[in-house]
Each structure stands twice: as structure tokens, then as C-alpha cells.
Design a protein around this nucleic acid. Structure first.
Lengths: 294, 294
DNA sequence: TGCCTTTCATATGTAAAACGTATGATACGG
DNA sequence: CCGTATCATACGTTTTACATATGAAAGGCA
């Protein structure tokens, strides 16, 4: 018993005759009679009542008809779901994010969902070491990290570059200003974003060095929302990517533009070069940038 | 795409390799690879990731696996349901009853349900003319009537014979007695069961005639429960089959054995001889008596 | 590293199954 | 009563699923 035979039976049941059903199925009548007979033998049940010219469904026939409708429908549903999954319009996307990139993910997912509303997500958050492990084990297919990173065997596509801003508590005298020179920042206690393996901390320290000053770092923290909380609580000021301010900022915090420097940071989307990318992941990446040929 | 291929894919997914799946399916490995390839082409989707020796399901593969499990299960359910219907352990049984037999039907159905709990019922109640029409149109498959009847082209199996009893209101002086002679009944006003086409009325009248008396019939009624109600209300006495008293009797009614006669009545189960009987109907009939060969 | 084993893919032949054509049997309608 | 329509049977053809033989490539082990 297979789906083809179920389709045959549906046609027979709905046409009320074998000849008509055969016409509808664009096939000859004898093989259809033959298939019907075969089904009856396989099931050990009469499916139609043969009284001369006309046929009528037996009870078993009615049962089979209902079931067949259902099964054929389900089969079609299944096929289209598999196709959609293959095309990446449905499926599960596993994304790893570093702590310093995670705050942008919700917006990225929101945007992606507009185009591919059937995709579901698994989001993992961890430091570079964990991300590397997850990429290796295929726990995640893609990761979003801060550049520069130290992930091996990966293709990296940088996302939008962004400048840094200084966020300060509104209680601070600095909150009266609109901007501040990089060199001047070194005079104030600072909280710095820092995650093992991520280069932002080194990048900033090197830039301070180029300007001949040493920052007064009172706290390193890998979690941006925690940094923002600390600033909001009046602990100190912090240098953070502009988008971090835009998404996490609140009334307790003021933002100062940083002058006298041109350092930027960018997130990047990363995946293992040699391994297979699901269509969903491919689409996700392509939302930001074209994927280079292997 | 058919069920067979779904089974193949389930084996591949669960074994994690094609060779092992082929072993489990008791077939050679190449045709299985071939079928898998064919499915992928039909769906336009990669189902497994080939990285050398090992295989892993793609997202589309996972989707298909889940769907396949579901579909194969549903197919098996459907097949067994159809088989059960064909064997008459499931299905719908349409029964017609004459008014004079209907009061026994609940017990018959209760009994039948013990053996075939999956059967559902459609019960129709009407006079002989209607029953005949219903049998003809296949509105009902079988009918239960009082003998003798006048149904054409039907096979009749008599059920248990039963004698008649006289039921009287407890307010009647007759209720003091245990039995009464048939001839004596003619002295009292009577309600008689009577349905067009059913022979009970004629049977009883003829019996009175044989004894040289004429009954004093003040009411003819085709509905037994109505007769019982009337007796209970003190309208008159009534001659009814014994089982009618047993099932419908109540505290307002006394029963008297009838002596001086040996007339009996029996219900019978009836169906159209030349037409197909569903297995459910066949089993229902066989609960009471073996079905004669055609 | 090199060899062996395991696994998947390809090629080709064979057996089975589905299908089409031709034809016969039977019932319904004019 | 005959013509037409429908289902069943018989037989040949095509398609397709399967088996065998063999090649390619990757992982395991010395």
C-alpha cells in the first residue's frame, strides 16, 4: 500500500466509477481496476460493492477514503515543509554570540524574521574559546563576534564599522559635555569591555598608548549590559561601541562623542570555512553581506 | 515519494549510515543509496551531509525524518482501521426496528457492544412500510420486526419465541389474580398492539375467534411504551409480549399469565437477501443465530 | 606514514511491477 | 431487443526497483 494507490482510491471514491477515475488520473481503466483489486487483497477487505455497472463504497471503503484524504494531505504538507527547510525558509538556526555582540542580535533576528518568519533560533552566548568549540562541534553554525578575533578555519565577514562613545553617569560632571578628547578620557576612571580572545581591549589600550597616555582602568568586564548597569549606578565611565549605547542606554547615562581618535570596531559574522552551511544560515549571513565563493 | 522511501529514510536516519540501514532493510546498499539520491532530486533538497565515511542529517533531513515517522505511523493506523472496519469490529451499523420490537434493541446493542466495542449505531424506528423502504434504499442494513411480517426479498431469522401476558392497572380488580383464561379476557376492555403490516393484531384476533369469543378492543396502538403508559394510567388492560412487560413494566401495572392458548410471537431479524451485508451487520445477526447460506 | 578496512558511489544486468491495448462479460436505457 | 457504457481478463511493453561487481575515498591502526 503506497501513496499512489491512495490517490487512485480517492479518485475512484469521488468519481463513483473506475472508468471515470481512470480518465481523471489520465490512465487506462484496466490497470486501475487491477490496482484496486490489489489493495483489496492486501487489506483483505472489500472496498467497493460491485453490483453490475454501478459501484458503491463499502464501510471499509468509506474508512479508507477518509484516511486516504488525510494521508495524502499530510504527505503534501510534509513534502512542502521539507522543501521549505531545504530552501532555508524554515528550520532552526543556531547562532553563537560573544557577549560584546549579543546586544545587536535581537535586532538582527527581528530583521531576519521579516523575510523568513518560519525560522526558529537557538542562541548561545559565550567567550571566544567556547564559540570556537561550538563551531567545531556544530553546536552553532554561525557566530557573531567582535573583531579582531582568533578563530581558526573560519570565514569572517565584517559587519558595519562603528565608532566608540564614552558613556558616563548623569551624576558625573562629564555629563554636561557633548564630547571629550581621547587623551582626556585617561584622566578618569574607566570600565573597559574585555573578553578573553577578543581584541577590543588591546585595540583601545594601544590607541591610548599611541596618544601617549595610560587609561585608568578600574574594571574589566565581558558583559556589556553589566557595564551599562555599572555606569548607570555611577561606578565609572566606560568606552563602548556606539550601538551598545543606542540599544542599552537609559536615563541614568549620558553619552559623549570621542574626539582625537579614529579607532573603530566592527562585529563580524563567522563560520567554519570547510563545512556545510544550512540554507537558513546562508540566508542569515546573506542578509548582511554576500558570501564569498569557496 | 512514497511510503516505501520514507521507511528507507527512517532506517538511514536511525542507523546513521547507508550500509547499516541496508542491512536492517535486508537489501543491498547500492539501491538504497540510489533511492536516497532519487528522493533528494525529487525534493530538490540535500537530506544528508556526505563528508566521507560518515553521514549526518541536514536540517531538511531532520524535518523529513520527523515527518516520515509520523506518516508511516499514520499509514499503519489507517490500514489497521480499514481492516477492522472490514472485519466488522469497527464501523457503523444501521438498524431499523418496528415499534413493537424497539424495546428489546437496547439490550441487544448492549450485548453486542461487549464483543464489538468499536461499532457505532444508527437506529431507525418505523412501521413496516417505512422499514421496507429503508431496507430497499439501504438506509438500514438490517431490521428487527415482529413476526409475521410482509417484507419482500428478505431473509428472516426468528429470534426467541415468547408468550403473551396480560397487563392490567393495579387499580383493576383483575390485578388480584395471577392468571386469566384467554376467553375471559374478551370480557374486559382491551388495548391491542397494532402496526400496519405486522401480524400480531390479526394473530390475536384469530385466536380469540378460535375460542369463540370477540375481544372488546377499545384501543389499537403501534407503540408499546405508549400502551404500557395507558395501562399504567388505568385506561384498560393490554395483551403484550412477555418481554415487553419485563422491560417496560412498572409499579402501577400487574401482570397476569394467559391460559387456554398457546399462541406465541417472536421478533425476527431481517435483511435483504440479495444484497451485500457489512461485516458489522453480519456479526450482529450472528450474535442471535447462524446466517443461512445463500 | 602506509596499509587495511569500511563506507559510499557508479555501472550494468535482471526481475518485478505498473501500465497500455485488445477483448469479453454484463447491466442499464431507449 | 439492441446499443452503449462499465467492469473484468489476457497479454505484451515499458518502467523501475533491485542485485552484483567494482571503483573512490576516508578513517583506523601499526
Amino acid at each position: 500500500m503506497d501513496i499512489r494507490q491512495l490517490r487512485y482510491f480517492i479518485a475512484i471514491a469521488e468519481e463513483g466509477q473506475i472508468t471515470g477515475a481512470a480518465r481523471r488520473l489520465r490512465m487506462a481503466q484496466p490497470p486501475l481496476s487491477q490496482q484496486l483489486k490489489q489493495m483489496e487483497e492486501e487489506l483483505g477487505v472489500e472496498l467497493i460493492e460491485r453490483s453490475g455497472k454501478k459501484i458503491a463504497l463499502t464501510q471499509a471503503g468509506v474508512t479508507l477514503y477518509k484516511q486516504a484524504l488525510n494521508l495524502v494531505h499530510q504527505m503534501e504538507e510534509a513534502i512542502s515543509e521539507v522543501k521549505e527547510t531545504g530552501e532555508g525558509v524554515r528550520g532552526t538556526l543556531s547562532v553563537g554570540v560573544s557577549a560584546l555582540s549579543s546586544y545587536r542580535l535581537p535586532e538582527q533576528i527581528r530583521q531576519f524574521r521579516e523575510r523568513y518568519p518560519l525560522i526558529t533560533y537557538k542562541v548561545w552566548k559565550g567567550d571566544t574559546q567556547l564559540l570556537s568549540q561550538w563551531l567545531e562541534q556544530r553546536t552553532v553554525e554561525v557566530a557573531i563576534v567582535r573583531l579582531p578575533h582568533s578563530l581558526a578555519h573560519c570565514t569572517t565577514i565584517p559587519l558595519l564599522e562603528e565608532t566608540f562613545v564614552l558613556i558616563v553617569p548623569v551624576s558625573s560632571p562629564l555629563s554636561q559635555k557633548d564630547s571629550i578628547h581621547m587623551r582626556e578620557i585617561a584622566d578618569h576612571p574607566l570600565i573597559m569591555p574585555s573578553t578573553p580572545g577578543l581584541g577590543i581591549y588591546e585595540l583601545l589600550v594601544k590607541e591610548f598608548g599611541r596618544l601617549g597616555v595610560t587609561p585608568h582602568v578600574i574594571c574589566e568586564c565581558p558583559d556589556l549590559s553589566l557595564i551599562v548597569s555599572m555606569v548607570g549606578a555611577g561606578v565609572a565611565a566606560a568606552i563602548v561601541p556606539r550601538s551598545a549605547w543606542e540599544t542599552q542606554g537609559n536615563a541614568n547615562i549620558s553619552r559623549l562623542e570621542i574626539t582625537g581618535t579614529s579607532i573603530t570596531s566592527s562585529s563580524a559574522i563567522v563560520w567554519q570555512t570547510e563545512r556545510h552551511l544550512s540554507k537558513a544560515a546562508r540566508h542569515f549571513i546573506e542578509m548582511f553581506a554576500p558570501i564569498p565563493e569557496q
